[in-house]
Amino acid sequence: MPVEFSRSTTEEKATLAIAGSLDAITAPEIRVVVDELVNEKQKKIVVDLAGLDLIDSSGVAVLVALYKRIRALGGSVIVVGARDQPLAIFRLLRMDRVFSI
């Protein structure tokens, strides 16, 4: 299952929507987008996972990297729309509170 993503930026926030499967195969694609967001020094990022069906530890690692790097810049990252298997994984790894899910 591939990953699909889209970006939108307004004056107040950048939104990254990720759909499909964020896993060991597709995580490198999203890592490129994470680099862009960090290089742009985005201060408020919303990650929309309403369309995400599956995530694995490689996918979680990319989101954690995004969170840590944006926080280091003084910004914030929140995750919205997580459901089913991805939500179960975030809860298991106690990341639901970190990501304000």
Partner: peptide, 11 residues
Amino acid sequence: SLPEGGMGIHI
């Protein structure tokens, strides 16, 4: 500490 690896076996 929000690890970026080493989570697979734990999961």
